[in-house]
Design a protein around this nucleic acid. Sequence first.
DNA 1: GCCCTAGTAAACATCG
DNA 2: TCGATGTTTACTAGGG
Length: 674
Amino acid sequence: MMVESASETIRSAPSGQNGVGSLSGQADGSSGGATGTTASGTGREVTTGADSNGEMSPAELLHFQQQQALQVARQFLLQQASGLSSPGNNDSKQSASAVQVPVSVAMMSPQMLTPQQMQQILSPPQLQALLQQQQALMLQQLQEYYKKQQEQLHLQLLTQQQAGKPQPKEALGNKQLAFQQQLLQMQQLQQQHLLNLQRQGLVSLQPNQASGPLQTLPQDLPQLWKGEGAPGQPAEDSVKQEGLDLTGTAATATSFAAPPKVSPPLSHHTLPNGQPTVLTSRRDSSSHEETPGSHPLYGHGECKWPGCETLCEDLGQFIKHLNTEHALDDRSTAQCRVQMQVVQQLEIQLAKESERLQAMMAHLHMRPSEPKPFSQPLNPVPGSSSFSKVTVSAADSFPDGLVHPPTSAAAPVTPLRPPGLGSASLHGGGPARRRSSDKFCSPISSELAQNHEFYKNADVRPPFTYASLIRQAILETPDRQLTLNEIYNWFTRMFAYFRRNTATWKNAVRHNLSLHKCFVRVENVKGAVWTVDEREYQKRRPPKMTGSPTLVKNMISGLSYGALNASYQAALAESSFPLLNSPGMLNPGSASSLLPLSHDDVGAPVEPLPSNGSSSPPRLSPPQYSHQVQVKEEPAEAEEDRQPGPPLGAPNPSASGPPEDRDLEEELPGEELS
DNA sequence: GCCCTAGTAAACATCG
DNA sequence: TCGATGTTTACTAGGG
């Protein structure tokens, strides 16, 4: 059920999710086919075969016994198969410390250990070792069983011979051969089942691993028949009609027993796919429908005990059935054990699949070096034809000198939704008014660094203001200057969102460039380039920290410097600008060399002005425009403002540059605060 | 409700 | 003339 709904959701996901799509398909295919066919089919087949047994002639008797043996063996194999793959098995420490508690007691105790608990108790290597032990034990039991069967068969043959009905050796050989064939068939069934399990995700073993036990059987069993089963060999033990001597198993399998202490009822482990192979899909689907008043093992009017399916009219009847048919015995214990393994395996598989998903996403979204065609945007950009030209060239021209946020590599995996990104800012939404950078004071650079790949691939509107983005774009360049077109390119390169609606956001970019004094247009050799006047930018709007007196008050009172929010601290850490205050830094070249990457927007709102100063710099000529770096000392920007001194931005007031009233007009520190 | 900031749209000017 | 670029204004909306 969950798988189906999940896959359905995935299928409905936007285009471009090929990986996911195939994933869903896989899930569908496996969940349907596996449980339905192999599992239930096998179980029923066995049952009917046994029921139809009549009796009598030695040959028939032999056949019957073979059938019975097969049935039991199949069950055993299927159960084993369910548990085969679980790296961690139920054996707990008991394997090491000879536990005296009978398996059945240990297993059926209400305090039974859950797989999770076992996983917690045992380390993976331990679990693996235990699993191997268990598998070896299982195999040994199986071999014993076959041996006994063969002995039984041999005894019968002797009996028949003594009865004066000698059977031609050939006939006997044929029977043995038939038996062997059946065993092989059984093994094939097991193999098939295992494959189904693998498809379902129940088994995560590598092909060779998974087939290990299967391959072992064909080798071992014939050996049993040929070797140990040789006529005349005395029966070692009394032959048990039931074939599987779980008592013996229990004795040796104390290692399987969960610690006497512990826990959750079986129901706790019930999982859809985790149902042993003998379960039907119907049961799987019903496993979720437990109601408070019902029993977890009772659903749809039938017993949900693995392999049972007994119809029970009501809960009371079911309880009776449960107590009688599934009492504390070795068989139930074994089944319980298998179920535990199944659950455990499912959990492991889930973890693996999750990890795989993460890896897939990481792979799909994180390849910085790979030339990414812009046809890839998650959402096609209508009317961006001319635009794509730009972006392609942009990609090609991606300046290596440009410092990429180091975090993309270090960042965990591209998050589906970056922190601070409200649903409203997801693409398609209307105008996003407030950007998180403003709201949460998160440095745009760190935010971008962390979610770089996300924004790059997801058609999600970045939670930054245009001004912040423009600034970031400019600051990311070695020389801290960009032409308008380069800014466009940066936008499209960095954000999938800006690969569409170009007219709108480009207009907004131009609007912001013109509107904000912090952006300085400089006539360059190659034309007009835009630079950032950090000081202006800082002054621009200190809404949170400085703009709002109350807010400032709160910050001051509520936060010590040491208690600044993480983002701000990160920003501080990032901004290792020694320079800042030094007017000498104004040289773009030196600045860039010194600040390869850190520029950072220390979060627009938060960034205090390092500057001292007074008036905003007039527009500077290319060489001089300074992206002054701000020293983010702390929120107390007012303090900085108080500092008298030449504006960092205008180290060279004399520098050429069109005197912009825009820049000059404001400037008094006091202004900003208001 | 006011004010500030931001986003969007549009008109207009300039320039190559 | 056209498109890119740049400036400006108006409006709307979110949030303090």
